[in-house]
Computed example of a mutant assay.
Amino acid sequence: MNLLRKLLFPFAILYGLITSIRNFLFDKGILKSYSFDLPIIAVGNLSVGGTGKTPQIEYLIRLLSDKYKIATLSRGYKRQSEGFILADASSNAAILGDEPFQFYQKFKNIKVAVDANRKNGIEQLLSQSNKPEVILLDDAFQHRKVKAGFYILLTSYGDLYSDDFILPTGNLRESRSGAQRANIIIVTKCPTSLSLDAQNEVKKKLYLSKNQELYFTYIDYDDCIYSEDKKIKVGEIKSLDKVLIAGIAKPDPFFDYIKKENDICLSFPDHHNFTDKDILEIKNLAQNSLIITTEKDYVRLKGSLTSEQLFYIPIKSSFVSGSENFDKVILNYILNN
């Protein structure tokens, strides 16, 4: 923790008090939460950014979309639009935000919507002629005006909420006690061979209640990179000169997976909107080399760099163990609601 964050400790106490009072008012029904007559699954975290919400939402889409009519609802972080928008052929990353646009491009059989007002967003989705049967709320753990039927809380293996503190001293949006609202807690970005002893050590730190289940996942990188119309095996490009670009919260695993020693690695802030100056810098550095980026950044860079040069590598969330039980819990929740 740096000196400035330590100096801001009194503000963290004040912020924590405000969020605790807010949660108390919602818990007691003094502030109203709205429920809806269909299964709603909220995926979120206690900390700001970088816990792997997007691959977890995509896991749920893959699990459910062949069985139910699915919609995702996000706020559309950093989008250049307002209000409720339902994705269609005219949509892009600027209108929807990068992650919802990624959902829309990858999964053609679901509805993708954005609205900062989740209650209004759900009402708009349910007013559609072909309304969804299940709604996945993206990054909505603190959005308590809507009461989801099922909550999945994510926390990163290397940055557990139990080891963190409230903003601005730490990175928590609310007190650690907020984790008690979760039905399932998933520790993300784990080593692929995480031992049972290590899992039990984490479990002790998180102080789960009796009705909560704990799972561990890791980021699984594809073995190919993709452009608009081509794919290449990662093994074939490892030795080539490349420019690697990441506008995500924690880019090191992406760089480490695909880089060689002399590759150029450009790191930008999470959800970065690439400027003309950024694009020119990338072109000058790359010349004729491959440019490889994350899937989330690709939807914002596509069209600004040539399709012959620009590639991305997909990721997905995979379970260290227990995926069958996780699937069963989710499917049972939907079946019973």
Rank of each mutant, 00 (worst) to 15 (best):
N92M: 03
N92A: 01
N92K: 06
N92L: 10
A93G: 10
A93Q: 03
A93L: 09
I95Y: 01
I95F: 07
L96T: 00
L96V: 00
L96N: 00
L96K: 00
G97R: 06
G97H: 06
D98H: 02
D98C: 05
D98P: 01
E99A: 10
P100A: 14
F101S: 00
Q102G: 05
Q102C: 07
F103N: 04
Y104G: 04
Y104E: 01
Y104L: 06
Y104S: 03
Q105S: 10
Q105D: 02
Q105P: 03
K106N: 07
K106T: 02
K106W: 05
F107S: 03
K108Q: 11
N109R: 02
N109L: 03
I110P: 01
I110H: 01
K111D: 12
K111F: 15
V112E: 04
V112A: 04
V112C: 07
V114K: 11
V114Q: 07
A116L: 15
A116P: 15
A116G: 14
N117P: 06
N117K: 08
N117D: 14
N117Q: 09
R118I: 10
R118A: 05
K119F: 14
K119V: 15
N120W: 04
N120K: 13
G121V: 05
G121E: 03
I122T: 01
I122F: 06
E123F: 10
Q124T: 02
L125N: 01
L125I: 09
L126V: 14
L126G: 12
Q128I: 13
Q128D: 09
S129D: 14
S129I: 15
N130I: 12
N130Q: 14
N130M: 11
K131W: 08
P132H: 06
P132F: 09
P132W: 08
P132C: 08
E133L: 11
V134T: 01
V134Y: 01
I135M: 12
I135V: 12
I135H: 08
I135C: 10
